[in-house]
Amino acid sequence: MKNEIEIPQQLSALREFTAARIAIGRTGNSIPLKQSMEFKLAHAHTRDAVYSTLDIDGLFTRLKVFGFPVLHLHSQAANRHKYLKRPDLGRLLDDDYKYQLNGNIAKPDIAIIIADGLSAEAVNGNAYSLLKILIPKLLDAKLTIGPICLVEQGRVAIGDDIASGLKARFSILLIGERPGLSAADSMGAYLTYNPQPGLTDESRNCISNIRKHGLSYKHAADKIFYLVSESFRRKLSGVGLKDNAGLLGES
């Protein structure tokens, strides 16, 4: 676009201090076209992310190199429409898929679950890259890992249903976070010790904003590994563990 609205340099200099949309100028009382379109484009990315779907084939291909079984599961929310309106259904595993867990009860130390959440794009793009660093660290620490579960239309708490079905001692759930205008592909990692249906958020630790231009895979893997080790040592996760997380230093 060619239109440019002039903004005094003293005002635009303030942009150095914040990523907020300041000093964007005005035409009349309205936001200039350029900034209006930038906003629209960012919002379009978030909308596309909400309706993006898990790349099941691609993830299968990449994840099987780790040598664990990969399961394809689905929540009780039949589609995205239902998922958005009924968060309760997104937290429960569909009965038709439960048999898959039965064949895989290996009582592993760790269950790894990948769910689309509010941005499948986020896990499509980030889950494998993180696991490539994280899984070797877990194995080096002599932790056993169960099947990797891919879940469509899943919310965070579905990890409890799945991990307890696998009789795992700990769950690492990777999920697409609610897309924002600054990033539509942020992945979160939720860590739960002794996962059981009915647990709530205070029982988990969360690491947020994992993506190429956010929290790096290396740093995220370090943080997750630290929290996993501490959880096994202290036999808990969540609020009780958070207090000491300062040991990790700033991200």
Partner: peptide
Amino acid sequence: PGSDDIMLNYQSTSFHDALY
């Protein structure tokens, strides 16, 4: 600023909206 709250990650009204 520009309707975009970069801390709470949601969209509200901009300075311009009030002027309008």
